[in-house]
């Protein structure tokens, strides 16, 4: 029983980190209609900044720089590239983002080399024990921070003018613009928020139980894509549910691989998120919480 519980808690805490990334995808999509395939590199960028700076300025200031750095790069991508697209449809923007991803990832890979950079997180490799269940402290913290982050997002979107403006812009841009909402401002806020969420996720994806910052982290971020898609392309709550579902599925399928292997074959844990995504989309083509008219490519 404690084994089952351990895998469930492992899965949920990992799922919450994935949901941070998935929420970033969803926020960028709703605020600017862009499928941001450079998001994985921004996750890596946030973690990289913390890894290279923590020795000189300390861990927490480095975290601040990491979050700001990722936000600024997001805003710059939007300001310098996305806004100047001659043909602003999601397909063109998606291809542009693939290009941005290649450039960012190549440069970060070059800088990281074949090292695994440590993050210098003060929680190190410590663990929390709840009865028979052992959980890495980093994951418990991640769960707490994620819950706080989503509470903050909820407050922003439902209680502030800026957030309501962002929702209005997402629902109907031209009308929102006529009502006096500055689309450039809501778009920049969306990209900045996504960047911050990406950097937070990057920090937790690269601290214990993961060893540190390596270029593959950008690829791990793609594990959040099924969470984003099955949650509905344009829904932040959907991203949270999607993340939890994917995290839980991965952990349980991997944890019970020995029992499942005779039916499903080896390594099913890697495929399971996509199977869940396809099943959900067959039943609910707009995702769990997506709006029906969301544009897809």
């Amino acid at each position: 029983m404690s084994y089952f519980l351990e895998q469930v808690l492992n899965g949920l805490s990992y799922g919450l980190v994935l949901s941070l990334i998935a929420a970033g995808f969803a926020i960028v999509f709703t605020s600017t209609g862009v499928l941001n395939f450079a998001h994985g590199s921004i996750v890596l960028l946030g973690a990289y900044l913390v890894a290279v700076l923590h020795d000189t300025i300390g861990f927490w200031p480095a975290v601040l720089v990491g979050l700001l750095g990722a936000a600024v790069v997001g805003v710059l991508i939007n300001m310098l590239l996305v806004r100047h697209l001659a043909d602003p449809n999601p397909g063109t923007a998606a291809i542009l983002m693939l290009g941005v991803d290649i450039v960012l990832l190549t440069e970060l890979t070059r800088r990281i080399g074949n090292q695994v950079l440590t993050l210098g997180a003060p929680w190190g490799a410590s663990v929390v024990r709840l009865g028979d269940v052992t959980l890495p402290t980093g994951r418990v913290l991640a769960a707490g921070v994620t819950v706080v982050a989503f509470a903050g997002l909820w407050y922003l979107f439902s209680r502030t003018d800026l957030g309501v403006g962002m929702r209005a812009a997402a629902a109907d841009g031209p009308t929102a613009s006529l009502m006096g909402i500055r689309l450039s401002r809501t778009a920049a806020t969306g990209w900045a928020l996504a960047g911050i969420l990406a950097a937070v996720a990057g920090i937790f994806l690269t601290s214990f139980p993961a060893p540190g910052v390596a270029p593959t982290v950008a690829l791990s971020a793609f594990a959040a894509i099924p969470a984003w898609v099955l949650g509905g392309f344009d829904s932040v709550p959907g991203a949270v549910v999607g993340g939890l579902l994917i995290g839980l599925t991965s952990a349980l399928v991997t944890g019970y691989e020995a029992e499942l292997e005779p039916f499903l074959g080896a390594g099913f844990g890697e495929v399971a998120p996509y199977v869940v995504m396809i099943v959900v989309l067959l039943v609910r083509p707009s995702g769990l919480m997506g709006s029906k008219e969301a544009v897809r490519v």
């Binding site: 895998q7 492992n10 990992y14 139980p209 690829l219 991997t254 020995a258 080896a266 890697e270």
Partner: peptide
């Protein structure tokens, strides 16, 4: 336990 290079957190595998 089969994994890919994207698997950087081996918590579930280690628990198993």
């Amino acid at each position: 336990q089969e994994i890919t290079s994207q698997t950087t957190d081996l918590s579930a595998q280690a628990s198993a």
